[in-house]
Amino acid sequence: MSDFIGDWHALLVLLLAGFLPNEVWRMLGLWLGGGVDEESEILIWVRAVATAILAGVIAQILVVPPGTLASIPPPLRYGAVAVGLVVFVAFRRSIFLGVACGELVMVTGKYILG
């Protein structure tokens, strides 16, 4: 998969496992939208499950990191994200400050550790 297009199998996977599963829910929303109470109990569950799946993926990236992120020692990966979260909570929920501080911790930490 070194060239620009890559292999067709991967693009087929993108269509089947990426595009369709998302588009189906959007189009269902368009066709059935009228009769659904957006604060109904089932949608609270839906949101909770979607949030938890995303949280699981975040954990997966940190625990089993892809690519060059694997070169960062685990305590430093967890520490950087923890600092980002604390800064985010402490400074009026600023995503920008949280991300910047988390990144700073990881880069300086890795630089010092070598």
């Binding site: 829910w25 959007r26 929303g29 839906v46 979607a50």
Partner: peptide, 14 residues
């Protein structure tokens, strides 16, 4: 996994 995570798009569209 993608299908389940994408359910949240439904209430957004609605």
């Amino acid at each position: 996994a993608v299908t389940v995570s994408a359910i949240r798009l439904f209430p957004m569209v609605v």
